[in-house]
Amino acid sequence: MLNYIIRRILYTIPIALGVSLVVFSLVHLAPGDPLSAVVGEVDQKMLAEMRASFGYDKPLPVQYLIWLGNALSGDMGYSLRSGAPVFEMLMNAALNTITIGIAAALAGFLAGAVVGMLAGYHHGTWLDKAVSAIAIAGVSVPHYWLAIILVIVFSVQLGWLPSMGAGSAAAIWSWDAWKHMILPVIALAAIPSAIVARTARACVMEILSMEFVEALRARGLPEYRVLLHVARNALPTVLAVMGLQFAHLLGGSILVETVFSWPGTGYLLNLAIFDRDVPVLQGTILLLALFFVLINLVVDILQTWVDPRISRG
């Protein structure tokens, strides 16, 4: 198993390099110079000087290597708009995204797993049908639309919760900060909870049809303890699905963060796109993608650890 884990970690290195190359080339797909879009009409000499100071006058492969080397040491350049260090901007934004990401993942996982397992256990009843219907709706719902509906109902109509921003950034543990988190978290949790519910339901149904469940019942185990066994057997699969969903959730938070003006990475990315702020754009995409790679790695390793049969090779 250790062997597998080491190989899995080593395999992440070429992937991460490939990701960085894709991120770098993506940004340079756009026609024109990154600077000319930002500074507008200035005299050519000044533009050339700025280009040299940002390193945009060097050939692309050299630019890539310099960028990669700097990024590895935590230097991601400076925003073309505000002049702030990209690394600092990213860390602040990432903290905000991870905060709602983890909250949404926990909420989605708990809701999905409990509801899905109950539905699978009571297979064929009205409860199962209701859960399945809600889950299929949850899988297909555009989360940015759900976000708008939440704003309309809870902010505009009822006036219970704020619709924008993160509140007083100073105190994460204040009620004000929590109030700002509730709606984005619900919008983000919808899809993962539906997917987890579907997985848990299918998983529980499959396990219930296995012989060992019958053996447990034949031994006279009370039903709740049978259910515990079932839950334990379903857990690795459900956890793995949740792990991947968590990773998708961070990447997919762009749209939800835009709706709520939540100061996270998605919002930063959105601003960077429309400002054509290349260093911020590159940094945000790279950070999110590397985070995704990392979570995939952790999920794989955890899964092998929970269920050694999975360890491939």
Partner: peptide, 15 residues
């Protein structure tokens, strides 16, 4: 290695 929405936004945003 990219979440699907991120990749779509990244490509469309760059182009």
């Amino acid at each position: 290695a990219f979440p699907s929405i991120l990749l779509a936004v990244a490509i469309a945003g760059s182009l």
